[in-house]
Design a protein around this nucleic acid. Structure first.
Length: 395
RNA sequence: GGGCGGGUACCGAAGUGGUUAAACGGGGCUGACUGUAGAUCAGCUGGCUUUACGCCUACAGGGGUUCGAAUCCCUUCCCGCCCA
């Protein structure tokens, strides 16, 4: 495999591939731009896809230039949104950026990267500069972007400031003299715009590389925290494991190929075994989850997360660690009050409904009627369903 | 500035005077089953209580009409589109 093949494996779009391959083969050291959106500090598995590729480039001697979008974060990237995001304060953005970088540097080498902030060049941007930048594109060109076009047609609002987003992001490439820009495939328009902006400022246009967007746990929409279908990098191992086990079966191989170092052969084998029913999807998913948790934390924690999961969900055992809640040890508890006190229900009405739906167990016994008072013994386990479990201790 | 269309529960979306705490879908929770928090099927999904078709809160805010309003009127605020 050539260097270019290796560095472009799995990419969705590459522009201009010939030129880029040539430069890679020649061994040029390239400045590869990677934009960071500090409006969302929580990195999830979806972010890992470009980051892993960035790491491969870094290992080949190219320099990641991390551009913190501290300025555009205050605008809100309209990508895929029908509603404008709330604008963030400078402090919030800075705190988010720091969190983001800390997590990013778990994947790429901090020493071999450059970190830049948009505010370096935008804080001094005056109106003349703004108009010059605006003059690099026409409204029609900007409206070609898919989501703008869609919003126009469905009579949704488009803020003028949103129109500037691609231009500002494009100018970042001018400011840092990017040779290549890496991003998710939803960024294609913005990245392409960067080429035009650079050309307008007399720079050679950057090459661009886009990677696939990872689908979230719902199996449909792209992974995003606000959609609630994301696995956060910083989340606890047991929680990550469980979330990954809820992944729809068809996505198993997708995750394997985008998030692990699995070889083409092994991937093909797993795929066909799943198809022929030789491999239980549950086990394939457990292996995947274990691998990913190992990567995000460490193998030992991944292993115990796996054991814990099977213990609770397959074998229907109690979790090994049960949070304790102190309550008074009276003999005639109203089960609704008890559920409320234990934090397992938000209201008495909800508590009554849970009991009615036979979800509640106290000391291993199913509670069938909320009208019946219950007696309590120290250390009794109260649970709602399989996952919400609490041990009651005397207060 | 003019015209038109909107603001309903976590989200989307019905409902244009009364059995509406509000259809339906999504999401969430739970149960059965099992291959897992996956699939499928089922139930639940405002609060409180003496669990009762009892009370309270709720259909952007305020005021009014009415025995009775998410539904009618007035007014304020917010949003969208079109024309200038």
């Amino acid at each position: 495999m050539t260097t270019a093949d290796e560095l472009l494996r799995g990419v969705v779009h590459c522009e201009n591939r010939e030129r880029l391959s040539e430069r890679l083969e020649r061994g040029d050291s390239l400045r590869i731009k990677f934009g960071i959106d500090p409006s969302a500090p929580d990195i999830h598995l979806g972010h890992l896809v470009p980051m892993r590729l960035l790491r491969r480039w870094q290992l080949r001697g190219h320099l990641p230039v991390l551009v913190i979008g501290d300025f555009t974060a205050r605008i809100g990237d309209p990508t895929g949104r029908s509603v404008t995001r709330p604008q963030l304060t400078v402090d919030e953005v800075e705190a988010n950026a720091q969190t983001y970088l800390d997590q990013l540097f778990c994947v790429i080498d901090r020493g071999q990267a450059e970190v830049r902030r948009q505010s370096e060049w935008y804080d001094g941007f005056d109106l003349v500069a703004v108009l010059r930048l605006a003059n690099t594109a026409t409204v029609a060109q900007l409206l070609q972007r898919g989501d703008f076009d869609q919003r126009m047609r469905s009579e949704q609002p488009i803020g003028v400031h949103e129109l500037f987003y691609p231009l500002l992001q494009g100018y970042d490439s001018v400011a840092i003299r990017a040779d290549v820009e890496l991003g998710g495939s939803d960024q294609l328009f913005n990245l392409m715009r960067g080429r035009e902006v650079q050309a307008a400022y007399g720079q050679p246009p950057q090459d661009i590389v886009t990677v696939p967007l990872l689908e979230g746990l719902d199996g449909e929409k792209k992974m995003s925290k606000s959609l609630g279908n994301a696995v956060a990098v910083a989340d606890r191992p047991t929680s990550q494991f469980g979330q990954l086990m809820s992944l729809p079966d068809p996505l198993i191989t997708r995750y394997l190929s985008l998030l692990t170092d699995i070889s083409e052969n092994d991937l093909a084998r797993t795929e066909s075994e799943l198809q022929q029913g030789l491999l239980n999807p549950r086990d394939a998913k457990a292996d995947l989850a274990q691998q990913l948790v190992s990567m995000l934390h460490d193998p030992a924690q991944a292993n115990s997360a796996r054991e814990e999961f099977f213990r609770v969900h397959r074998d229907r055992d109690l979790p090994s660690e049960i949070p304790e809640v102190a309550v008074s040890m009276q003999n005639r508890w109203d089960i609704r009050e008890l559920l409320l006190a234990a934090g397992l229900a938000k209201s008495k009405g909800e508590a009554a409904r849970l009991v009615q739906g036979s979800a509640v167990q106290l000391a291993g016994e199913r509670v069938s009627d909320w009208r019946q008072p219950v007696a309590l013994h120290p250390g009794a386990v109260l649970q709602v369903g399989n996952r919400r479990v609490v041990r009651l201790i005397p207060s």
